[in-house]
């Protein structure tokens, strides 16, 4: 199905000037892993932030800088903006050190999301690697909110080690709610009783009908390339496999051209793309 046909793929227009950040207060912070935290934010003006799964905001640590961060919260809870941030540098490091009560700035939500509703009536395979589960968590929550609308739903999650897995307390809940959740790590000690290997090894465990499956893939680009290829090898059409592409961004609204990838502006045409639109470009770093 062409991407443009899914109505909720279109970003809800952010209120006011999209270049002006809205102040939000940090309500709570949970440490997910050694270098990653999940934070709940609430807008000072009390107005919720409606978003589609897969969209991101430009999140600003005042005086430090602004970075694109996917929304990892529940799309049914626009009052609470949830982000999961991994400390990889200046801005993300600063964001990972916030405490309840701190103020941050938010622009957005921006971008084109997963369009998970295109999977209604069929099977959905979610493949996530590392922090890539964060942008896919809203997909899982959206599916759970209307579980009966979807067929078989698999969540295949790969991480570097058991200690670096996100949302560990929720994975069992997802299974209990009728999702087929499989986890694999690159390496583990003996206390780990789960699988060790790469995320694509989980695909044979997922039951789906390739002709009516929507595949949603997020993680490091190399992992996405292999996972997307594994899905198409199983017979899922490239147009029904979607990946979330990360490129450095500035404005987030298609003005500055910073995130240009050949003919696409990742911030507005993406970050989610169908494989048949973006596949070959997954190997291109910055343009």
């Amino acid at each position: 199905m062409p991407a443009e046909s899914g109505t909720t793929l279109l970003p809800p227009a952010p209120a006011g000037d999209p270049m002006v950040p809205r102040p939000v207060r940090v309500e709570s912070v949970r440490r997910e892993t050694r270098d990653t935290v999940t934070m709940d934010l609430r807008a000072l003006d009390g107005e919720g932030l409606v978003f589609a799964p897969g969209q991101f905001t430009m999140l600003q640590a005042f005086g430090v800088g602004e970075v694109p961060i996917s929304i990892s919260g529940d799309p049914a809870r626009p009052d609470l903006l949830t982000h999961t941030v991994r400390d990889v540098g200046g801005v993300t490091g600063s964001l990972c050190r916030v405490e309840p009560g701190d103020l941050l700035g938010v622009r957005g939500a921006f971008g084109r999301g997963w369009g998970v509703e295109d999977g209604r009536g069929g099977d959905v395979v979610v493949v996530a690697g590392g922090i890539g589960l964060a942008p896919l968590r809203p997909v899982v929550l959206a599916v759970l909110a209307e579980r009966a609308a979807y067929g078989r739903v698999s969540v295949l999650y790969g991480a570097r080690s058991p200690a670096e897995m996100l949302f560990t307390d929720e994975l069992d809940t997802w299974t209990a709610a009728g999702l087929d959740v499989h986890v694999i790590v690159d390496v583990a000690d003996r206390s780990w009783t789960g699988r060790v290997g790469v995320v694509t090894e989980l695909l044979p465990d997922a039951a789906f009908d390739p002709d009516r499956t929507l595949g949603l893939v997020c993680g490091p680009e190399l992992m996405m390339r292999y996972a997307a290829a594994a899905l198409t090898d199983r017979g899922v059409e490239p147009g029904r496999v979607r990946v979330s592409v990360e490129r450095n961004m500035r404005c987030g609204i298609g003005l500055c051209g910073h995130c240009q990838l050949r003919g696409h502006l990742v911030c507005v045409d993406g970050p989610v793309f169908e494989l048949d639109r973006i596949g070959p470009l997954l190997t291109v770093r910055e343009l």
């Binding site: 991994r86 990889v88 922090i131 290997g197 090894e201 992992m223 292999y226």
Partner: peptide
């Protein structure tokens, strides 16, 4: 193949994902 991919440590700090 699986070993090669893991050698690259794709989830490592250089790759935000």
């Amino acid at each position: 193949q699986a070993t090669r991919v893991r050698l690259l440590d794709v989830y490592g700090a250089d790759h935000a994902g």
